[in-house]
């Protein structure tokens, strides 16, 4: 069991290593001649205007929140899928109920306009 996961640690370590090596390459070999112009945020050649980080439409947060909720449900669906054969009809019905509830929530958000992007 546990050994199955160790290789994933190994590859993760390697990936992290490579990621930093690549960054390091750029730092080592790239020239470094900053000027104020260069350092200015890119705005299609215009003089930068206003702060770079601005408040974003609340839609983004809404989507994030909805995602959290619905994504967690997917976790249940996935685990259920593994053992569906053992659960049989009742398992199917149970999930059906679960999904109906989920869909009600989805429809509610939909109808309330939470999914509109304007």
């Amino acid at each position: 069991m546990f050994e199955d996961y160790l290789p994933l640690l190994v590859i993760l370590a390697l990936a992290v290593l490579i990621g930093f090596i690549v960054v390091l390459l750029g730092v080592l070999f790239g020239p470094r001649r900053p000027t104020p112009r260069k350092m200015a945020p890119y705005e299609s050649g215009m003089v930068p205007y206003g702060p770079g980080r601005r408040r974003m439409s609340v839609r983004y947060y809404l989507i994030a929140v909805l995602f959290i909720l619905f994504d967690i449900e997917v976790v249940f669906v996935v685990s259920w899928a593994v053992v569906l054969r053992k659960l049989g009809t009742l398992g199917l019905l149970g999930m059906l109920v679960f999904l109906v509830v989920l869909e009600v929530a989805h429809l509610y958000a939909w109808k309330k306009g939470a999914l509109e992007w304007d």
Partner: peptide, 22 residues
């Protein structure tokens, strides 16, 4: 990045990716 395009791009990417992750 402290750049309007980047911020907006990042947000959009995030929103899009999480939406399609479902």
């Amino acid at each position: 990045s402290n750049n309007k395009y980047a911020t907006l791009g990042g947000l959009r990417a995030t929103a899009q990716m999480i939406s399609y992750e479902l």
